[in-house]
Design a protein around this nucleic acid. Structure first.
Lengths: 228, 228
DNA sequence: CACTTATGTTACAGATTTGTTACAGAAGTA
DNA sequence: TACTTCTGTAACAAATCTGTAACATAAGTG
């Protein structure tokens, strides 16, 4: 299947080379010069990938991102932000809003293509909700606090990220490799079995007072989080 | 102080992103679906900013604006009008009636946020003496005095700003970079670890007589201020 | 059952992150 | 100016987290 990519960019000089290279790489390329056009096209016929310039006329990148993420049909479409150099805040904001990755202008086409491939591969739902809950577990992203019932649970950084990822993807089974990609970010060189250890740690701390275990082991497939 | 903003808008699709973004920006957001509710809320507990849709059920924007301006308690509250494209007359009328600024739908959230910041800043001096308290800590912005219980605490300028920022954003975790942006203002070139030192100083002076520590370290994420 | 494979569990060394301190230079004051 | 106070940084100490290996246990297979 040829994947469709929508390039949302108002700088015409950038559009052409992008279009050329993505087409050459086998994508079906469409473009939108501003956020309004983009929204229209996205909701009309959702592409498999969106390249999104953060500085846009009419509808800002953040707004567009938000709207894409809030629509059931489009919320899983991977988004790569294109930001100007040094716009650190935009990047953080963008990632918080649910962009999957970013590249900084000027960027190498090859790098962008590589990231596009990576991001499509691990397309997943992202919700930048402040608070995620599941049964008696709640995880607050803003405060980084986690509760089971009314008992606060202290988690290390990796456990926090792991739990967050699970909560964002209830019931779905992930292989160790997938978890490494999503939770550890795709740059780390880590043994798949390491996931087991962190799952164990998470289970241990989540199941104090021998409460029900939310993490399910799916033999020879991976782990999932949900009712059991 | 976290500023309260009242969004007076009947278009539900607009309320959500507005609410989300203003909340994220640190405002306390309240909404009113029509002019009657709005009036009620405004006179009951005047917000620091009003976003006012010009086309409203029950009481029109113009009417609402007039009433707000005619009341001693509320006449200085900045108002930003939200108008539909091309409603030129409304805009002029609105500005005559005392709105401070306007944006035209559809608008960029970032632009609106920028304008909100600007009008509040203009209006700010009117809301002079300010005092933020949290548990046994009180910080007076006007006098720059800080107390823990009834013991005055001497703070340097940076510690004061840092504490103020924390008090304005209870429980929320901020990365070192975020703190540098907000407390040091985004112009300074300062090592992230510098934040640690100031946090340490703040802790030290805040926790005399080995009192409870309000500043929480969130490993690999940053710091937050609140109950622990 | 014996055998193979996958997962659970544990301990620990090394890595990473944060706490703490001292200090030189900047900035403010009298 | 002389003096005080404040700031940012570096350097080291302490705390905490991480990944791995090694072994234990459980689950499939024929």
């Amino acid at each position: 299947m040829r994947l469709r990519v929508l390039i949302v960019e108002d700088e015409e000089a950038l559009i052409e080379p992008l279009k050329y290279n993505f087409t050459k790489e086998g994508y079906i390329v469409d473009t939108a010069l501003d956020g309004e056009i983009a929204l229209d096209k996205i909701f009309n016929k959702p592409p498999e990938l969106i390249l999104l310039d953060w500085m846009l006329p009419k509808i800002s990148g953040i707004d567009l991102c938000k709207r894409i993420r809030n629509n059931k049909e489009t919320k899983n479409i991977p988004i790569i932000m294109l930001t100007a150099r040094g716009e650190e805040n935009d990047r953080i904001q963008g990632l918080e809003m649910g962009a999957d990755d970013y590249v900084t202008k000027p960027f190498s086409i090859n790098e962008l293509l590589a990231r596009a491939k990576a991001v499509i591969k691990r397309a997943r739902p992202i919700f930048a909700e402040e608070k995620i809950t599941f049964c008696d577990i709640s995880l607050n992203i803003a405060t980084h606090k986690v509760f089971r019932g009314d008992k606060e649970i202290k988690l290390g950084p990796t456990e926090f990220n792991l739990l967050r990822f699970f909560l964002e993807n209830i019931e779905r089974v992930f292989s160790r490799e997938q978890l490494l990609n999503h939770v550890w970010k795709n740059d780390a060189l880590v043994e798949p079995r390491t996931v087991d250890v962190h799952v164990r740690r998470l289970r241990k701390v989540l199941n104090t007072n021998n409460k029900k275990d939310y993490i399910r082991t799916v033999r020879s497939a991976g782990y999932s989080f949900g009712h059991n």
